[in-house]
Design a protein around this nucleic acid. Sequence first.
DNA 1: AAACAAGTAGACCGAGCTGTCTACATGCGC
DNA 2: GCGCATGTAGACAGCTCGGTCTACTTGTTT
Lengths: 193, 193
Amino acid sequence: MDKRTHIINTALNTFYQKGIHSVGINEILKQANVAKKTLYNHFVSKDELICACLEVRDQRFNRWLSNQIADCATPQQVAGALFSAIARWIDNKVPELGDFNGCFFINTSAEYPEPDHPIALQCAAHKQAVLELLINTLSQTTQLQHQPTKATQMAHLLMTLKEGMICQARVTHTTNHYLQNPEFLAQLMDAQA
Amino acid sequence: MDKRTHIINTALNTFYQKGIHSVGINEILKQANVAKKTLYNHFVSKDELICACLEVRDQRFNRWLSNQIADCATPQQVAGALFSAIARWIDNKVPELGDFNGCFFINTSAEYPEPDHPIALQCAAHKQAVLELLINTLSQTTQLQHQPTKATQMAHLLMTLKEGMICQARVTHTTNHYLQNPEFLAQLMDAQA
DNA sequence: AAACAAGTAGACCGAGCTGTCTACATGCGC
DNA sequence: GCGCATGTAGACAGCTCGGTCTACTTGTTT
């Protein structure tokens, strides 16, 4: 396998589970069975490796989420698909996202408080991309295809709920089950539409 | 002033702004103008200092939030007071909580991924306390005082929205303004009641 | 005055970190 | 067969970290 990809996958996994600052380069080398020089042939620094991990995670997560909410005809269906997908992720039933440990981008951003740091910027960009995915998906439902303002408003609501759900699960190890109740969701969405 | 309190205040401020692992003991000593031995007379380790900071932050935050949503007669008012308070915090208009840098407990928890770590447990306990504050407050509104299930359900919704709002503000430096629109909130709450 | 608690200043230790460098092995194109 | 890119293994430098310890100062109690 491509060494570079192998290193990124190993690093992504370890960083996601243990955080960035807690994990040294040597630990990644050991887990990847790779020499230090090989790593530094592919990445000039730990920071660049982190950025590569964020990029891969971003692609992987967006592809997964995009599939989960595709082909939804109504906003209610989008919301239902979104929250049940997140719940499955929290419940460790989505192997491609790894053992749930919160949002990799929120976690990483918390370790890089300077807003202008490249890593922090990449985390913010991911969130923007997800929001746009939600807006686009909602805009393609029959109810909202000619109401871009409503679609944007609803996307923000879903986004905020999604972030909250993930953070709560990460910190308290609980899941907000109300967000998976179809009646609850119908009321929530009806109120907006 | 009490040295111990002074150290905690300085450490809390620095930890909140820059994260835990990024900040060394020496940096705190310098900012607090305190000798290393003094610090280690009051705290056996950095971890114990962190725990003390979490405790102070927990008290301070809960007292503040409790005041913000006290004396609300309806769930709508609770929601309105909650989100406008959070928005003010994000907007750096709440000096007692310091310059906004997300939720100290979520940030800190992200740096201690092991669920059984005392620090992680303390972060989780804080979230539980806030949830209970919301449940109690909602249970005292006229609409919900005899509907504990509804009150709990609504508290979970508000809690998830609050967490999401804070995380989004932390990562993307944007505020979900829809949550401050009274009509939006009324619809949201009506759907539940 | 003497004893003592509590503070300052900072050297120091052992450990861990990122990143460099040397020495050697392997496989592929020419 | 030879050159060269790419890999392994790991010592090493230079730094920072948490935490200990010594030496000295200050203020209070008895």
